[in-house]
Simulated assay, not measured.
Amino acid sequence: MSSDISYTTEEIAKMLKISKLTVYDLIKKGELPSYRVGKQMRVDAADLEAYKQRAKGIKAVPQPVQTADPLHHGAALSGVRPLVVTGQDISLDILVKYMEKGVAGIRPLRAYVGSLDSLIAMYRGESDIVSTHLLDGDTGEYNIPYIRKLLVGFPCMVVNLLSRNAGLYVQKGNPLGLSGWSDLARPGLRMANREKGSGARVLLDEQLRLHGIRPEQLDGYEEEQTNHIGVAAKVASGDADVGVGIEKAAAIVGQVDFIPLIQERYDLVMLKKAENMAWIGALLDILRSEEFRKELQTIAGYDLSRTGEVLFET
């Protein structure tokens, strides 16, 4: 029966031919009721059908309202606000775990979206907490130049989550002797690349621009991987000579060497709306807590010296 069927946010996005962030936006607005099973959000088939009927202008048959979510610590669905948290680093999964325990009245939803697309989603009102690591090559500064340009007129707060090493993945033993960004100009070099809008892709494109290297010189530049591990794995398997990413992914994949070239700042961006200030305060308390920092310290490659520091406010 349809009452026994439920869908993930990915499945709904494919069925409706919309982005996953748009699905989260519908959940945030209360137009698409959802619940959590473990780390996964699900929507019942009946609720999806009711939404489609409303979108067509057809009055749906009223359904009983569920007042509690037994799969989410017994929290009442009424009055619980979904918050979309974008980004791909494991530190965000840890942060969401702390938010679920320590921030009343909210329900975090994870969206695995790149840095630039995350900021654009915030501009559109589709995300609440954006993680970003975007290098501005002209100033050498991370994130804030992009935030100034994309969130014009939006009062916001930028808080550091962590810093981490970024650089080049090369094959084990570095047989080509690659050592820096300028080496990407070598003829015949095979690249494993990230998707447009990701921080790693912006880092690569900025370095290519600064070093006068044309993207078309790199074989494989147009072939995109959706995460750091995918890039590192391409290099480890011998399908590519080089890729750009973070140190932690090289350790996870193994059989690949990492050349650190820059320490990137990984920040959180939040809009300073009146209705956000309570949970923003609670989030800052989590970031600055000894318990949270201790858990992040167990992960190699993180610099937590500025974690919880407010870097920029408008």
Results as ranks from 00 to 15, higher is better:
I120S: 00
D138L: 14
P155K: 04
H73M: 15
A121T: 02
Q66P: 10
K172T: 11
P145I: 12
M122G: 01
G74H: 05
A76W: 05
S91M: 06
G125K: 06
L92Q: 02
S127L: 07
F154Q: 11
N143R: 11
Q88H: 06
R124L: 15
L119E: 01
P70T: 09
L95M: 04
Q171K: 13
G105S: 09
A104S: 10
G79P: 04
I147C: 09
I90R: 05
T86R: 02
V96E: 06
H72I: 05
G87V: 05
L176T: 07
E141R: 15
P175D: 12
L135G: 07
L161C: 05
N160V: 03
G87H: 02
A104K: 10
V130Q: 03
I147R: 07
S131R: 06
H133V: 10
L178G: 04
W181N: 12
L178H: 07
V113A: 00
S127N: 06
E141K: 13
D136C: 11
G125D: 07
L77R: 11
A166M: 15
V84I: 13
P82V: 01
A76R: 11
K97S: 08
H133T: 13
V103T: 02
K97T: 04
S115L: 03
G167F: 00
L162M: 14
F154E: 10
I90K: 08
N160I: 05
I147K: 08
D89L: 07
V85F: 00
R164A: 14
N143Q: 09
S163L: 09
M122D: 03
I94P: 00
C156M: 13
V130S: 04
R164D: 15
L77Q: 07
A68E: 14
A104R: 10
I120N: 00
L150E: 12
D128T: 06
R124W: 06
L109Y: 01
P82F: 04
A104F: 05
P108C: 04
H133P: 07
L134E: 10
Q66A: 12
D89V: 13
L178N: 03
V113P: 00
D69Y: 03
Q88R: 07
N143L: 11
V103N: 02
L71H: 08
Y142V: 08
E141F: 11
